[in-house]
Structures are given as C-alpha cells and as structure tokens.
Design a protein around this nucleic acid. Structure first.
Length: 566
RNA sequence: GCCCCUAUAGUUUAAUGGAUAAAACGAGAGGCUUCUAUCCUUUUGAUGUGGGUUCGAUUCCUACUAGGGGCACCA
C-alpha cells in the first residue's frame, strides 16, 4: 500500500511539474491521529512550489482524488501532513491474507537469488563464551533471519581465533595449573587463560616465553603441546555447539584463524611495496594516507596478526562460497563489537587495494558492548559471567513462575523463555549502542520483555482452542463496521520486515511486536473471543489468529521460540 | 595529543528534519465467581550546556561538558 501511495504522489508531483523531491510515507507515530499512513510531501515540496505547505497539500489531495484504490479519505493535518485513511475492506482482506500466507506472512523477494554470508558470535577457542558474546549472536541470528525473510540464500558462519597470543597464554596457564589433555574441560580452559594472562603480565621473561610458545603453536612443532592444543580446541568447539543449540543458531561453517592466516599472509606478502611496507621488522599498512592509522599486518616474528587473518578471511569466504554454492557471495556481513570499528576501516581499506572485487561486498554491523549494571567483567582475570550460567539462572526463574501452569515439557519451555528474555533485552536496543544488562531485570518477565511476547502468543493459542471447542469457526464474512486497532497493526508487518532489514535494525521488529502484543492484550481485555453467541466472534477469532501468526513470525525473526503454552 | 562513538522521564530504552517526544520499570489509584493477571485501565514525570541552519531540530552544523572506544607488532 505504501508503494501505491508513493507512486501516485510521484505521478501527481510530475504532473504539477516537480521532480526529485525526497518525501516520506509512513505509519503515523502521533497519538492524535488514527490515520493509516501519512506523507510529509507537501512540506518538503512547499519551498520549491513557493507556496504554504497546507496550500500545496490541498493541490496534491485534489489531484489524488480517486486515484488510489481502497482509500477511504485523505485529510490535511497539522503543518501540512497528508493523512490517508484506508477502507474497512482493506483490513478485512489483510486478515484473510495473513491466514492464507501463514509462515510466509511478511516475506519479500528483495534478496532472492542472492548469497549472503552472515558472520557472528565469533567466540575464541580456549576462552570462555561469556554473556558478551550473546550480543553479536542475537544480532547476527536476527539479521540472518531477516535476510531469509527477503529470500536470500543465507549462510551463517563464525570466525574463531584458534591461534594467536590468547591461545599461547591459555596453554601456558594450562601447564601451570596442571591441566591434562585427557580430562580437559571448558571451565579449566577459562581458568588456564586467566592464569596465563596473569603470568604474561608478571614478568618480561614469562612474556617472552609465551611469545615463543605462540610461535611453536603456529608451527605445530611440539608433539606434546599439539595434543593439549587439539584437546583444548575440541573441548571449546563442542562447548560452543552446545550453547548454539540452546540459542538457536545453526552455523554452516566455522572459519579458523589458523586457516585464514596463511591465506592472508600470502596476499599481504604479494603486495609488499605497493600496498604494504616493511618497517622495524614488521609488515605494516600506512593508513594515514587515507585518513586512518597505521596497523601491523605481520609482526616481527613473521606471524600474521589479526589484520592479516581478516584479509585472509574475506578470501576464504569467497573460496568457501565457490566450493559449497558454486558462486561468488553477493554480500558478507560481519557482526562485531564497536571497539573494532576504527580497526575495520583500516583492514577494509587495505582489502579494497588488494581484493577490490570482494571488499565492496563486505559490511560491518557493529554491536554495542554489554555492561553489567553491577560489577565489571574480564576474561583476562577470569571474572566473567558464562553465557550458559546466565541462561540457567533465568531458566530457574521461569520454571518457578510456571509451577502452577501444568505445562508439558516445562524444562524446554523454561529454556525458551530464558533465551527470549535475554535476546529481547539485547535486541530491543538499536544495534551498536551499549547495553546495560541488569541480571535482576533479566529474570523479571513483566512489561516489555521476551516472555511478554511469548505469553501473548500462548494466550492466543489458548483462546483459539477455547473458541474452537465453543463452536466458533474462524471467518472474515461478518465483520464489525470499525476495524480493531490491532488489525491495523497486523498489516504493517511486511513493511516492518523490509525496513528492519534495510536499516539492519532488528530492534524495530522488537518494538513493533511489543506494540502489537500490547494492542492485542487490550483487545483481549475488551472483547470476548470464545463466545458462540457473539456474531463477531468468528471474525475476532480470525483477527486473533492473524496476530498469532504475526507474533510467531516476528519472534522467529528475533530467534525466539513461540511456545503454545507457558 | 589525534581520531571515532554516545548523551532523552528517578531507571532502561524508542522516535527516515515534522503533528501535544513514545513505551516499560519504579511510584500512586483501580480491575480476575468471566477466554492463561507473565495481563488490562489510569495518574506521575524527560531531549547535557551555549550558539547556528530551517517554516519546523531529540535528529543537521559548531563550541563546550561528561562518558566510552581506537591510535605498531593482542584479538
């Protein structure tokens, strides 16, 4: 509908002799109008027209008369907004569309036939997967699903630092606290890393020793160390898989720094002189030429730094796409912390110079840092909140809450509620902004929260069951004269999907769903649905079902399960 | 020192340059013999400071203040 209105306004503008006017058509956020769409076109164009906005709006409205189907009326309001009111029939048809579309409701084809790689979570083996990783995980998973909604062939991948100084520190620490290859656990690795980090800072000698160890790890020149390394890496990866399963992320591929490093190294070495420069025994990229800063790509030990591994990663993604899909990827998104924004500009610039055809398809989506409302976190000191521990805590609270509800398989549902609570608190905030995470609040399910959305969904499932047993059959035949407010929200879903993807803004989905759930709950409080004596009950049930489908789809986009009972 | 990001009710967050800045939590008042009260109704309360651009600024520019991040061999 938005498109139809836009087309007609553009037509009118050109007939009036105007072009290149950048105007908006959107849902009003203003509480004083119940219009379905508004446009600011008259205000934007008023200057060019040399007329007062309201006056110019009159002209547009007159010209639009009868040109857009299913428009009830058009009004001019405030400083010159043009408000569009849709016919009752439009909303009835929408409800029918939703019921027909089911799981396809809200899909579009803006990315169909495109291969999109989304890289996110990126925990490092030998380190703990802590609650900080939940942010890029939630964001990346949601972006991947938005791309799927747009018809993209979407691949989920991670990039894991299986070599590098942190590994050397962890293995040094592992030897110190006497970790055995045969019995190694993920908890031990966390402690080993903390011990190694402390040791690294304790003296120059130890630091030098750990640097030496780093090289040995790269070269795999020590049999005994290799055994410990392989065992540690496997334990880490198995542990990550366990968490991904709980979070609902199913990755297609893990890229490892041990693999992308050599690939990047070759690319960098090939371009020494033109792009990179040798300096003080290292290979650097002088970012100052481009308004950036200098970064080291190969250290004076001849080892690739993260920069080079990242350059190699782009090439590896391309190779992997060719091998598994048989074509070049169309777009690659990396979700990573805002602290890497500056860094990323440098590697992107270097990448543009040595692999221009790939660099242009790479995009960084930054996620904010998760800060605890109380206390600080650091994997360096071993003072972290493990992701799994948080999920378990929230799950306990959910189980407590569900005690009297007689839910079958309450363990599974409680876990779904826990993940919902955590993901919601992350995704409700615009991507890139830091998140203040309050442990106490995360186990409170009142108000705007993941469990609130799930609850609304479960409530609809329940009332629809009641309606069915009361003999109320869903129907859109007999409808009340006025649309329910919730009907108007339901029809916005496809446009919310489009905007959220375009702006890489899953938080818009969160806010939309929260509004939808709130509006439904008001509807629920005011209207009896499972009432066989109410002539509109079949339509109310149909509307409820449309809301249920929309909530289920919306939660899916957020990577949140929608249980039918809770 | 240089560069980047952020600043909105007591708190946590929304708002492509537009209408009386929107929610939730908290605090106050109501609502289950009636479809799941993890709910609903209602009251309360905010754009860091000073300039500028604009018919119109939370949004753009600028200075300041405060916080965070980055700046050569960590990832």
């Amino acid at each position: 509908m938005k498109k139809e209105i836009r087309e007609q306004i553009e037509l009118v503008l050109s007939e009036l002799g105007f072009s290149g006017i950048d105007f908006a058509i959107d849902f009003p956020t203003d509480k004083n109008t119940d219009a379905d769409y508004f446009s600011n076109v008259a205000m934007v164009a008023a200057k060019q027209a040399g007329e007062a906005p309201r006056q110019f709006a009159e002209k547009i409205v007159t010209a639009l008369e009868g040109r857009i189907s299913q428009i009830e009326k058009i009004e001019i309001a405030g400083p010159g907004f043009i408000n569009f009111y849709l016919q009752r029939e439009f909303f009835r048809e929408k409800i029918l569309n939703v019921l027909d579309a089911k799981e396809n409701w809200g899909k579009n084809n803006s990315w169909s036939n495109k291969l999109v790689i989304v890289e996110y979570t990126d925990p490092n083996p030998f380190k703990e997967l802590h609650i900080g990783h939940l942010v890029p995980n939630a964001l990346g998973e949601s972006l991947a699903r938005l791309f799927m909604m747009a018809g993209a062939n979407t691949k989920r991948v991670t990039f894991q630092g299986d070599v590098g100084m942190h590994v050397a520190k962890a293995l040094y620490g592992a030897r110190q606290i006497d970790v055995q290859s045969e019995s190694i656990t993920s908890e031990q690795l966390g402690k080993a890393y903390a011990a190694g980090s402390r040791a690294f800072e304790s003296s120059e000698e130890v630091a030098a020793e750990i640097k030496g160890l780093n090289k040995v790890i790269y070269n795999r020149s020590d049999e005994k160390l290799n055994t410990l390394y392989d065992a540690g890496k496997k334990v880490s990866l198995d542990y990550f898989e366990e968490i991904y399963a709980v979070l609902g992320s199913d990755f297609d591929h893990n890229f490892f720094e041990s693999v992308t490093g050599p690939v990047g190294l070759e690319l960098v070495q090939k371009n020494i002189g033109e792009v990179f420069k040798e300096s003080r025994g290292a290979v650097i990229f002088e970012g100052e030429k481009y308004g950036l800063h200098t970064r080291v790509f190969v250290n004076n030990e001849g080892l690739p730094t993260y920069e080079t591994k990242d350059v190699g990663l782009i090439q590896c993604k391309e190779n992997w796409s060719q091998e598994t899909v048989g074509k070049s990827f169309d777009h690659a998104i990396t979700v990573t912390g805002t602290e890497q924004l500056e860094y990323f500009k440098v590697t992107t610039k270097a990448s543009e110079l040595i692999q221009p055809d790939l660099a242009g398809k790479v995009e960084l989506v930054a996620n904010g840092m998760l800060r605890l409302a109380e206390g600080k976190m650091s994997s360096r000191t071993g003072d972290v909140v493990r992701a799994l521990a948080l999920i378990t805590d929230v799950k306990e609270a959910a189980l407590e809450r569900m005690k009297e509800n007689n839910v079958i398989d309450s363990e599974t549902v409680a876990e779904q509620i826990a993940v919902a609570a955590i993901k919601y608190s992350i995704l409700q905030i615009a991507a890139g902004k830091d998140i203040v995470f309050d442990l106490k609040k995360s186990i409170s399910f009142e108000g705007d929260s993941g469990p609130y959305l799930q609850y609304t969904h479960a409530r609809i499932c329940s009332v629809l069951e009641k309606a069915k047993s009361a003999g109320v059959e869903l129907s859109v035949e007999n409808i009340p004269a006025e649309s329910y407010a919730v009907e108007k929200l339901v029809q916005q879903w496809p446009e919310v999907v489009e905007v959220s993807l375009k702006e890489r803004a899953p938080h818009k989905v969160v806010h939309y769903l929260t509004e939808l759930a709130g509006e439904f709950n008001s509807f629920y409080a005011a209207e009896k649905i499972a009432d066989e004596d109410d002539e509109y009950a079949p339509y109310k049930a149909a509307v409820s079902d449309a809301v249920r489908i929309t909530l289920e789809r919306g939660l899916w986009v957020l990577g949140i399960e929608a249980p039918e009972r809770m």
